[in-house]
């Protein structure tokens, strides 16, 4: 038994090294003074300065944040509704259709989603004159569509794990469906709704392929700018940008982990 667990630990550790080594290298090299990305020229914050003076990157980042914020907020509402239907409504043909449509965007290759949405927008424009041209609004619609699928999955799994007795008690006491949902169910699934929003925000912020299809000229989101820069090779400014993004995510995940660990410790003590 001992030998097998050594083998297991070694392979799992190698897996984690594989996951983290490139990111750590990227962070370290973002502080490199030298323009040549592989030659170490000493520590420097030069590329962070360059990053904040680069208007193209800043404008694209602001546009991306705006799109991500709106998309995540709409996706959370629609996704929560869908997740609620999937776990709390009785089986019906309509529910089967919804459950098929909601899981498909999760695995659909992005090039297909992007192309199909663009062709829809073009067809709609020639039929009804809306959306006139493509830009922020078409990117938001596209992002809502795939983000709501993630929210629905998260909310559905939270609802199906949840203890239903509180909802039953509220019903027995005569709560109306709307007050039952907003006063009992929603507060109980709030952690899932929040993580659905955060996940939607990051997915929207990160999307290159779908946004490239459905955006119009002059609407470059952050991933599009990054892609056009790194296509030509490694760029120290992008290293600095990546480091900032990793830092923000790491703080968030470490905070969540600390919370989870505390709960797990409590559980261990109870056992």
């Amino acid at each position: 038994m001992k030998r097998r667990s050594l083998f297991l630990n070694t392979t799992a550790t190698m897996g984690f090294i594989f996951l983290y080594a490139p990111m750590i290298a990227l962070v370290v090299y973002s502080f490199n003074k030298s323009k040549l990305v592989t030659v170490w020229g000493g520590w420097s914050l030069k590329w962070y300065g360059e990053l904040f003076r680069n208007d193209q990157i800043i404008d694209a980042a602001l546009l991306s944040f705006k799109i991500a914020f709106i998309s995540a907020s709409v996706a959370v509402v629609l996704g929560t509704m869908a997740g609620f239907v999937l776990s709390r409504f009785s089986r019906s043909r309509g529910k089967m259709i919804l459950s098929g449509w909601i899981s498909a965007p999760l695995v659909m290759p992005e090039v297909i989603t992007g192309l199909s949405l663009l062709l829809l927008f073009v067809a709609m424009e020639s039929a009804f004159g809306w959306p006139a041209g493509r830009g922020t609004i078409t990117i938001i619609i596209a992002h809502v569509t795939f983000c709501m699928a993630y929210v629905a999955v998260i909310v559905q799994s939270r609802l199906s794990q949840m203890d239903e007795t509180l909802e039953e008690a509220a019903m027995d006491l005569g709560a109306k469906p709307s007050s039952l949902f907003f006063l009992v169910t929603l507060p109980l699934i709030m952690p899932a709704v929040i993580s659905g929003w955060l996940l939607s925000f990051t997915l929207s912020l990160d999307d290159l392929v779908i946004a490239s299809f459905v955006s119009g000229p002059g609407n470059s989101t952050l991933p599009m700018v990054i892609f056009s820069k790194v296509r030509l090779g490694v760029s120290p400014e992008v290293n600095a940008l990546a480091t900032l993004m990793i830092l923000v995510v790491a703080i968030g995940v470490i905070a969540a982990m600390w919370q989870m660990r505390r709960q797990a410790k409590l559980l261990e003590r109870q056992e």
Partner: peptide
Amino acid sequence: RALLLSLVILPFWTSFLLRVYAWMGF
């Protein structure tokens, strides 16, 4: 388990594009 789970999930929250890019330099 909570620690390992968040170690697996952390890269998932960082930009996909930037993670691919990290391998270019590597």
